[in-house]
Design a binder for these strands. Structure first.
Length: 424
RNA sequence: GGAGAGAUACCCAAGUUGGCUGAAGGGGCGGGUUUGCUAAACCUGUAGUAGGGGGUUACCCCUAGCGAGGGUUCGAAUCCCUCUCUCUCCGCCA
């Protein structure tokens, strides 16, 4: 959420920045609502001041055994007027708040203007794209032949975009989760968290999924709980409505979760294989920093995710998202894209974002810069470290051999009971 | 799921015949006095916040706020309704 005072003081500049995302954004309706809201508020508060004063006078008169009937009658009128103003203000405020909560974050000045992923800026590449001396197979074929992926039965039991992983496939999935968490806790200073996989609407609002993106979430109406689309939601909301101790910053937490996404609007995209599922596994990294250090911390964060890809020996590239591809809450996002032979291109496997104070303001996550000073909003960042299902895809396809076997990266072999090859 | 108890400031905790209580009293923390230092004693300060207005940008004023949201009333921590959470007992259960 953008600071509403920033908008009031600098509407032209804020609008200009937001129009880099979408030229159609106009703050005019918002400014009108804000103006209206303040007018009503001022009159309402003036009347409340009168009410408070006269109520005291009534109390005093009664205490002395006097009659206050006249004043009470007068106050009945004032009370009615206050009620009317309150009602009117509530209506205006609702629209005002809705507008404010549906405005995206202001993109960082270095985010390139663009409309699609074609406009993203390629920053660096790592590793060699594999040259196969044979016709490489897509992961769904490899998985079926090796009996480690069962997509048809996923469809039977749950529906399309669900999968069973079997045998060494299931083991690989589990090995990756353990490797990711072990590495981030041992080498990058993260505290491991195992979060709830369902979250309430306050939490979903805090990280920015609600109110605007409800259609992307799975929801349990009876309990009023949402299935989390990423561990970012519970991990960030750990400190919702709290003031963090400055000496504890940066706070770095990482956690595994299953992620649930309805993929509304993705019909027909990535229908083969397991690139795009309703349920997938991910290890998420979340940082809480002071506003002064969040941009340095983003560089650290993305390097932590890159390190995992390097250890797995997977070829990838780092891109800076353009304004059109930038998430709603993001001020700046690096995507890490891994080479996927069956797609013939790099595919997103990690997204590392600085949300500045956008989520912190929604979730009321603050820190006190120094003792006695006013608490201010912290900055939140997160990054995938990494998406597990897509890592499985990348390993299967990049490390396949002519016989359709999968060679396990060295760092994972201990996690696979010493296994070096699947299908060997 | 059934029955009961509770939620007041950083913590503990009074306050429910509605009205100088925006909140007694402790503890903690900040400042001070006595003191060679520490301890102790004594004095003193201590809502944070959100919203709005003013401003000489030092600050000042107002409104809200006693778990949350509604309601009754001239006036609500106090009365009524709904919800959330915590604790105890029973039931069920990985």
């Amino acid at each position: 959420m953008i600071d509403h005072r920033l908008i009031r003081e600098n509407p032209g500049e804020v609008e200009k920045q937001l129009q880099r995302r979408d030229p159609g954004i106009s703050l005019q309706p918002y400014l009108e609502l804000d103006h209206k809201r303040r007018n009503i508020l001022q009159e309402e508060e003036r009347l409340k001041q009168v009410r408070n004063k006269v109520s005291q006078e009534i109390a005093e008169a009664k205490r002395q055994g006097g009659d206050a009937q006249e004043k009470i009658l007068e106050m009945q009128k004032i009370a009615g007027k206050i009620k009317e103003l309150e009602e009117e203000r509530r209506g205006v405020e609702k629209a005002w708040h809705k507008f404010l909560t549906e405005l995206p974050n202001i993109p960082h000045e270095e985010v390139p203007v663009g409309t699609t992923e074609e406009d993203n800026k390629i920053i660096s590449s790592w590793g060699e794209i594999p040259e196969f001396s044979f016709e490489p197979r897509p992961h769904w074929e490899l998985g079926e032949n090796l009996d480690i992926l069962d997509i048809p039965r996923g469809g039977k039991v749950a529906g399309s975009r669900f999968v069973f992983m079997k045998g060494d496939g299931a083991l690989l999935e589990r090995a990756l989760i353990n490797f990711f968490i072990d590495y981030h806790t041992a080498h990058h200073g993260y505290q491991e968290i195992f979060p709830p996989f369902l979250a309430n609407s306050d939490s979903m609002f805090g990280t920015g999924q609600l109110p605007k993106f409800a259609q992307d979430l799975f929801y349990c109406p009876e309990e009023e709980l949402y299935l989390i689309p990423t561990a970012e939601v519970p991990l960030t909301n750990i400190f919702r409505e709290e003031v963090l101790k400055n000496e504890d910053l940066p706070i770095k937490v990482c956690g595994y979760s299953a992620c649930f996404r309805s993929e509304a609007g993705a019909h027909g995209r990535d229908t083969r294989g397991i690139i795009r599922q309703h349920q997938f596994n991910k290890v998420e990294l979340v940082n809480f920093t002071s506003p002064k250090t969040s941009w340095e911390q983003l560089e650290v964060l993305v390097s932590e995710a890159e390190k995992i890809l390097q250890l797995l020996e997977l070829p990838y590239r780092k891109v800076g998202l353009c304004t059109g591809d930038l998430g709603f809450a993001s001020a700046f996002t690096y995507d890490l894209e891994v080479w996927v032979p069956s797609s013939g291109k790099y595919r997103e496997i990690s997204s590392c974002t600085n949300f500045t104070d956008f989520q912190a303001r929604r979730a009321q996550i603050r820190h006190r810069p120094a003792p006695g000073e006013k608490a201010e909003y912290a900055h939140t960042l997160n990054g995938s470290g990494l998406a597990v299902g897509r890592t499985v895809v990348a390993i299967m396809e990049n490390f396949q051999d002519q016989e359709g076997r999968i060679h396990i990266p060295r760092v994972l072999q201990d996690y696979m009971g010493g296994k070096k090859v699947i299908g060997g």
